[in-house]
Lab assay of single mutants.
Amino acid sequence: DESNKPILLPNESQSFERSVQLLDQIPSYDTHKIAVLYVGEGQSNSELAILSNEHGSYRYTEFLTGLGRLIELKDCQPDKVYLGGLDVCGEDGQFTYCWHDDIMQAVFHIATLMPTKDVDKHRCDKKRHLGNDFVSIVYNDSGEDFKLGTIKGQFNFVHVIVTPLDYECNLVSLQCRKDMEGLVDTSVAKIVSDRNLPFVARQMALHANMASQVHHSRSNPTDIYPSKWIARLRHIKRLRQRICEEAAYSNPSLPLVHPPSHSKAPAQTPAEPTPGYEVGQRKRLISSVEDFTE
């Protein structure tokens, strides 16, 4: 099969070098950035008060330690540790928490760990991170309901609301924008112990962030949302095809390698009803078989 044979790379090609550099910018793992907010007593309706908090309760602090690993920003190499735009020179604080497994990295933009500057009256330095995160974990210690939209931002799609209760338990629920209701189930609340709260809140936030990324990708319907490693695979396959075309153009005697095509017509299947918005969006999480067989 010609399409699977190794090909020689061009010795000097600026377009090839640019493509390789672009490939280096696509990590081999999925990345997520999640905002974390603490809401104190009497702050449920005040964005400024929430963003001005420099610490929270003892249970909130224990919750943070379970979310991930504490890292010092100045020691991080952005090409190895995903920071979601946090500055490593102290502009966004000294520490944050991050978490990773074999296929993804997540960083938490924690408002109480970011510096509260006197010259920044409206807390814009914090909002440029927190307001651009799709998902926020809100530790609501106010005793009042927290409403979506209290923290203004164009991309605040989903809130994971943590409400501490007695007996070391917590109520965990989801809020989302109306255009996200087909992807996020907000109907079920959970009672979770303090011990298990970081794991549950983190998983709910990661799932909500993946759904938000799919939702946000609708602005470019021709580019369905893939995982990062599938995006790398697609980029490599496009690069291979372009090299083959350039080689055939410079030397017409060489065969032009095309991806294999299936001449056999697909079997006719009964027509199915058109899937609704929710089903269609969830299918976009699934990769096409052509990603692996071309």
Rank of each mutant, 00 (worst) to 15 (best):
P198F: 00
H100M: 09
E245C: 06
D194H: 01
S219N: 13
G153E: 05
L254H: 15
P6W: 05
P115A: 05
V289R: 15
E54Y: 03
A265H: 11
F16W: 13
S142T: 02
L174K: 02
P27H: 04
S219D: 13
S52M: 06
I230M: 06
F63E: 00
R59E: 00
D145L: 04
R69S: 15
Y38T: 00
W99L: 03
D125P: 09
T186F: 04
S263N: 14
K5Y: 14
V81R: 15
P275N: 10
I34T: 01
V135F: 01
G56P: 02
S3H: 11
H262R: 08
K80S: 07
A248P: 10
I224R: 06
D179S: 08
T150H: 03
K152W: 09
T163R: 04
S173A: 08
N251E: 14
K147Y: 08
K152M: 09
E41Q: 08
K117W: 12
E245A: 08
V188P: 14
N170P: 00
M180C: 12
I224Q: 07
T96D: 04
M210A: 02
Q21R: 05
I103Q: 05
Q281A: 14
G153S: 10
Y58S: 06
K264A: 14
K178Y: 10
K127W: 09
N45C: 06
T222D: 13
H235V: 15
S173G: 08
L9A: 15
I34Y: 01
L9T: 14
R123Y: 14
F16S: 06
A271M: 13
G276Q: 13
K264W: 11
Y225K: 10
M210L: 09
S173N: 06
Y225H: 14
H122C: 14
S136F: 06
M104I: 13
D101I: 00
P259S: 13
A49H: 03
I230L: 05
R123I: 11
D92W: 06
G40V: 00
L9G: 08
S227T: 13
L113V: 03
P78Q: 14
S15W: 14
I7F: 08
V214Q: 08
V214K: 01
D223A: 05
E12N: 07
P255Y: 07
G149R: 04
S263V: 08
G143C: 03
H258Q: 14
M204F: 02
F95Y: 10
P270V: 12
Q281F: 08
S288I: 06
R282I: 08
T269M: 10
G56H: 02
K152G: 13
A111Y: 07
D120R: 09
D87N: 12
R234L: 06
L9H: 10
N156D: 08
R240E: 15
Y167R: 03
S173M: 11
R123L: 14
S193P: 01
T112D: 02
K121F: 09
E62D: 08
A248F: 08
R284Q: 13
L254D: 15
V200Q: 02
Q43H: 02
H109W: 03
E91Q: 13
Y225V: 13
P6H: 06
P273Y: 07
V158A: 09
P252A: 10
E245I: 08
V160G: 00
V172N: 00
L174N: 02
D145K: 05
L64C: 09
D141K: 01
A49K: 10
L83I: 07
G153F: 07
K264G: 14
S15L: 12
I161W: 00
E62I: 03
P10I: 13
D185I: 02
G42L: 02
D101Q: 02
H159Q: 15
S28E: 15
D125L: 15
R282W: 05
S193D: 04
I103H: 07
